[in-house]
């Protein structure tokens, strides 16, 4: 057993435990913090896979911006835990059965069909160099220039949409 595999197994345990903690904790603030932990472990996986730029974007955008927004809204609404309501008795067993079917099916298909016979080796020092980033930027701004511009418009529309939605009363008063 090599050191990389040990790192992978320990981190994947942390990632799965954090995901389960996110789904099952009663307090929404704890859920958000578990999700931050999960995002950070996934960022370490990106580093192991030789994608340092994506790892850093993951930490700044996901673990930083998005989760702060979540925590802000949870605390603004006081929605840490909802009052328990009458629940459907078959909902949980049904959900667990469906999830078990989904995981078995997807693992079966991935292992039997995809069969990627490749091992991920430790990223060498070249991955962290500026040349690697430059090459990625060249791909993004040559081959994927149109999607990049469309993304900027999408972000603008989302910003306008969020402002319009939360500002509805004032617009109605005019």
């Amino acid at each position: 057993m090599n050191s990389e595999l040990i790192v992978f197994l320990v981190l994947s345990l942390v990632a799965v435990a954090a995901a389960l903690g996110m789904v099952f904790s009663r307090n929404a603030v704890y859920s958000a913090l578990f999700l931050v932990l999960n995002f950070i472990t996934v960022a370490v996986f990106y580093l192991l896979l030789g994608a340092p730029f994506i790892a850093m974007s993951q930490i700044t955008v996901y673990a930083g911006a998005i989760m702060v927004l979540f925590l802000f809204v949870i605390m603004l609404l006081g929605a840490e835990s909802l009052a328990p309501t009458a629940s459907l008795p078959w909902q949980k067993p049904m959900a667990f059965t469906l999830a078990a079917i989904l995981v078995v099916e997807s693992l079966y298909l991935l292992i039997s069909r995809a069969k990627p016979d490749v091992v991920v080796t430790a990223p060498d020092i070249a991955v962290n160099s500026m040349d690697n980033l430059r090459e990625m930027a060249m791909t993004m701004f040559n081959q994927f220039l149109l999607p990049f511009e469309v993304t900027s418009i999408l972000l603008l529309v989302a910003m306008v949409g969020a402002i319009v939605l939360t500002n509805r009363e004032k617009a109605g008063r005019k």
Partner: peptide
């Protein structure tokens, strides 16, 4: 040396936990 399958399997498990969360919460 981690087989790439392991990453795919982990991804499938995380996806299923997310789907479970949508179903039960």
């Amino acid at each position: 040396m981690v087989p790439v399958d392991y990453y795919i399997i982990l991804s499938a498990i995380l996806f299923t936990i997310g789907a479970l969360g949508v179903l039960i919460r």
